[in-house]
Design a protein around this nucleic acid. Sequence first.
RNA 1: GGGCGGUUAGCUCAGUUGGUUAGAGCGCCUGCCUUACAAGCAGGAUGUCGGGGGUUCGAGUCCCUCACUGCCCA
Length: 950
Amino acid sequence: MPHELPKAYDPTAIEDHWAEFWVRENLFAQPTPEPGRDAGQSFVILLPPPNVTGRLHMGHMLNQTEMDILTRWRRMCGDRALWVPGTDHAGIATQMMVERQVVSEGSSRQKLGREKFVERVWEWKRHYGGAILDQMKRLGASVDWSREYFTMDERLSVAVREAFVKLHEQGLIYRGAYIVNWCPRCQTAISDLEVVYDEHKGHLWEIRYPVIGEDGKDSGEFLTVATTRPETMLGDTAVAIHPEDERYTHLHGKKLRLPLVDREIPIILDEWVSREFGTGAVKVTPAHDPNDFALGERHHLPSINVMDDTGHVNENGGKYAGLDRYVARKEIVQSLEERQLLAGIKDHVHNVGHCDRCKTVVEPRLSTQWFVKIQPLADKAIEAVEKGHIKFTPEMYAKTYFEWMRNIHDWCISRQLWWGHRIPAWHCANCHKVTVAREDPAACAHCGSEKITQETDVLDTWFSSGLLPVSVFGWPKISQETRADFDAFYPTNLLVTGFDILFFWVARMIMLGCWFAGDVPMADGRPRELKDAVPFREVYIHALVRDANREKMSKTKGNVIDPIEIVKQYGTDAVRFTLASMASPGTDIAFNVARTEGYRAFANKIWNAARFIFMNVDKAAEAGISVDRSVLGAMPTVGEDAPLEARWIVAELHATAARVNESLANYRYDDAANAIYQFFWGSFCDWYLEIVKLRLNFEKQQVGESAGQLVSGNEAGEELRSPRSSNARDLRRPAEAALTTLVSVFEAALRLLSPFMPFLTEELWLAVYDGQPPAKSIALTRYPQADGAAKEQAPIEEMELLQNLIVEVRALRKEIGVEEKASTPIEVRTHATARRIFEANHDIVERLARVSEMRIAHEISAGLAKHHATAFDVAVVYERKVDAAAERERLTRDIAKYEKGLAAAERQLGNEGFLAKAPAPVVEGLKKQAGETRTLLEKARAALESLPKG
RNA sequence: GGGCGGUUAGCUCAGUUGGUUAGAGCGCCUGCCUUACAAGCAGGAUGUCGGGGGUUCGAGUCCCUCACUGCCCA
């Protein structure tokens, strides 16, 4: 059956097909292992669940490419590989999106009511929620789709509820009025992490507060306070000064009259106050500032909340009630000015917190929320990393992790939303106590009253995603019958993610995982130690994908690259390879399509190599020669009598496989990708394919044409024989052997490449087997592993010598202007070892350097242009005059280079300290190199002198 | 304000415990449609490794310092 491939590789023609095939065939499903049967080593990765509302961006693609490469690689290495996909319900984001939709229909969330609104969100999810995973399918992610989860699934909701109840039982959940970050637009509390700070040019208003005298009337004196948020003065309950601030000593114990509100407030003394900032007197608003709240606690001050859920002044604001906070600010400043209570306005740059989700300025506000007392969980999480149970790559991120973990604040987990896991707590109208329960209670657990209502708040989205490593494998319902998944797959091996969710997600998973998995005994019944309670053993943090100019991609800048678009243009494989080759740990990726173009060319190169190979396989078949398929699928080997190029390419393949495996083990995707690229293009295509053309001679059965004939130089006419000449009686055998090596090396190289370029390799691999593949997919074959014995140096060194000769001849030809098509004789002066190699492989030199005849000579004939290497001198026999000026320039440059190098080497070798202290191999290496440089220098100098003058 | 990075060829980046004359891709220059591939082949040019100081026989690599730059936290 002839293989017919189009001349240029068109990824769009095959990618959709394979993407669908992999999903349809459920190729990457990893079934639950049979209990009690050790099915080998697991490799488990959890996909960081994208928001269900999300669209795939470049960051996702990088993340997924890295995970897919590792998963495919481990799977091919024989591990029980499992990559679990899913989506996050993304509380605020999803609620906002559906809310907008509802509003556009003329309705509203409130009009619909909670139940109907939540049903609408589910409906939305059913229709559009799969979009991002569909995009993922298109990228070829080798996940187990049968295990797809959604954080609001029943199964995962049970885990959320169990976690909450358990923490509550352990006294680690509390509810109370505290200052939280309030988003007036989302109308919910948000956690510290969800606040992003932006530098903002604002003002510092200085307000004069009248001091009340002994008589209870205004004394005529004022205390001036400075504030960036004058509207919060409505809620002031004190003014604080530093106890040792001499400017204000006389005011100790006095009271002030709060302007506009006309409330008496005390002057309090606290060392927290900075004497340098503003006027050294600070207004205290416990209900609207975290520092003030702490001050209020210390000094037992009342808290007066003056803001409602929407950021408008509430009834506590007197005549300002109902005004938006910024309108109120304006009016208050104006009123103060009218009353001559405004001492000044200064420009002031400060950081303002914004809602991570909607960018609205956050209002710190006193409000009743649910919190997790985090310290006990954090302690375990710190220990897990300190003791090395979890390893970070790059290691640097462990520092960031510790920094945050050691300064952690209690986690505000309640959100005033409708979309999410509703907090399993019931308020009693009778005794006002709270009942927290696994099953919905019918009555108050404290007084038995049936007048109970469920808490309306839902949990922070990260509470459920933080539980994923335990919940996707069945926690908390882990019984004798249901524990196989947990035993086989927990802890997961690796988490691959961006640093942006290091605290949001990674840290929370570590805390919750260590906390809850610790209660699950090991498969053999032993108690689980911390090292096995961790949610993952390693964390790989990848960089940010930026645009080609290193700018952060953002919608407002308009520099966002849509991965799907770029994939359509260049092919998924090329984009994946771009990301992999640039994914050096710790460095951001400047995504440059020029690189992608280069890797599309790489894909095309491989495609065409395949065309060449198939063409020859077909030609051979016509001559009755077929490839021995039984040798495919393993690591290729060759006998000692095989031609140099065969021994060389096999050695290179083994060396490359070793390097790729090692690089991947260290998350060096860039090293691995570059090694494969170099092998495929630089070694396999540029050298091996060109040489192997000499051997693929199927049609003609004549003898002695290419083998055994060698023109000797002036060596007394000695006839030299090629080692292959003994096989000359049957030319089919070497051709068949060459074809087999060619195909088997190519097949192995495809497997090596397949985690990086799954589509192209799938297509070509199947073509290699011509409809009779040993597996359904290349992804289910074995990954090439280097065999120590096959990694020999000799063929690599011999080949290098040959390559040097060929390159020198090509350069020489270019310099003296030999036409590309012309073949010329060459003269080579060399020592015995190199001579043997050159002579044995003269046909290679002849073909690759367009040499008509290789003459081994004692001396290069006078007048010929020549080049020098340490092992040989070579000249091209050609009548055209040497460009003496250009030659002089080149030699002068070379001489300068050699002199510099030699001087440096001799300086070191003359240094007694170096000789005494440097390790012997280094000294030996330097001596050898100095010797070689000296040879080259002498040769170059002689050549320069022998050049015709002028 | 605290913490953590980065600075290597025109561009984007490698350079793992200090060890020979610092690499790759892209781009650039020159010549080739050599029937696998012009998305190609062959040849070529390109660096005071941010500045300064130190440790060492030896520093792109370790230490100090300065400059510029990015990120995280408050």
